[in-house]
Amino acid sequence: MYRETGLVNSPPPSGQDDAVLLGLVQRGDEYAMAALFDRYSKVVYSVALRVLRDPSAAEDVLQEIFMQIWRNPDGFVATRGSLGGWLAVVSRNRSIDALRRKRPMESVDDMALASNYNLANEAERNSLMEKARGVINLLPIEQRKTLEMAFFDGLTHSEIAEMTGDPLGTVKTRIRSALTSLRKAFPA
């Protein structure tokens, strides 16, 4: 309760709201920053590691993203959606940029993200992960593989079409259908 009034630099209680923690980070609270790191570092690191397949490079992405939050906590505003979801997507995007050795594309990171789930809560997060994995495992193999190649390997639809021998339109439709299935499993 007292943390909600904005006391800085004392350990926050677990389960503190993301928005409150971001507010404290804004005021230079290192404990709040550590709490955000403890909450989300695993997913940020895991996504980066899946894309880059290199623990050291994945830790560099992890460091870069959390330093971005420290330097500019305003960069994420609550109206954009869930912080956990945003971090997972930004981790993927930054890792693909690192893979392509190109500068981050801020215009895409800046996008809003629709999410009705509280990824700040560990139990809810774990249950959502399990459910999402279940949905993905039930997708037709071509859809699953195509989405994986696009999202985690950063292959363009043309590259996927070239590798699989499938028409471009089919590749695009598979990606979209896979995402639609995922969305249907998590209704608003």
């Binding site: 899946r50 420290w70 993200l113």
Partner: peptide, 30 residues
């Protein structure tokens, strides 16, 4: 925004791995 939400959910299907303790230490030092 809906698609970004779908992608966020998809990103969470990745096998979870913990970063090293040094990663946390490095961040806090920075």
């Amino acid at each position: 925004a809906e698609i970004q939400g779908d992608l966020a959910m998809y990103a969470h299907t990745v096998e979870m791995q913990s970063p090293s303790a040094q990663a946390r230490e490095r961040l806090m030092k920075q």
